[in-house]
């Protein structure tokens, strides 16, 4: 895929829609377009983080835990942003990502991504929105788990009595 096409892909995504053309081109120029087959790994939990990934086509599964303890926690689809948390926190990857089927992603250099987001209020707000959505989803999940754990405890208490 050539540079103008990547620029077009980026422009189609709300996060970058408002960027001016030269910034968009810089973003595209410093990015790598990856094509992956089902099961291929984007990154492993605990890997050092240097890039952010934007899904252009296909879907990816998110797993936590390593080896036998690996559990799928979510799925992410077209225009989904992956790996931005580790870039902002400057921490290792917190989950493993695998391609669910044929997957096309744009690998954006972490430093360039940070620079673009910090220079553009619109983009920053959009990233905040994405992160808030993720936080909300996590909180919901936590509440649900807490409720089911409490229910399970109740059941075990009743069964013992």
């Amino acid at each position: 895929m050539q540079l103008p096409e990547i620029v077009a892909v980026l422009r189609g995504i709300p996060l970058f829609a408002k960027l001016d053309s030269s910034k968009l081109k810089l973003l595209a120029f410093s990015s790598t377009y990856l094509t992956m087959d089902a099961g291929e790994v984007l990154f492993f939990e605990g890997d050092p983080a240097d890039s952010v990934y934007l899904i252009d086509e296909g879907e990816a599964n998110i797993f936590t835990g390593r080896g036998a303890k690996e559990v799928k926690v979510a799925q992410i689809g077209r225009h989904g942003l992956v790996g931005e948390m580790a870039i902002f926190r400057d921490s290792p990857r917190s989950a493993t990502i695998r391609a669910a089927g044929r997957l096309k992603v744009l690998k954006i250099d972490g430093d360039v991504f940070r620079a673009v987001v910090s220079e553009n209020p619109e983009a920053a707000l959009t990233v905040m929105g994405i992160l808030s959505d993720k936080l909300a989803a996590t909180t919901d999940e936590y509440e649900r788990l807490k409720a089911s754990a409490a229910a399970a405890k109740d059941r075990s208490v009743t069964s013992q009595a």
């Binding site: 030269s22 910034k23 081109k25 810089l26 120029f29 410093s30 250099d109 430093d111 360039v112 620079a115």
Partner: peptide, 20 residues
Amino acid sequence: KVMVELFQDLPAGHEFFERF
């Protein structure tokens, strides 16, 4: 032409010059 367009707005010491 491409390089000038991409990099002319960056401040002179920016690390992107070195990297990209």
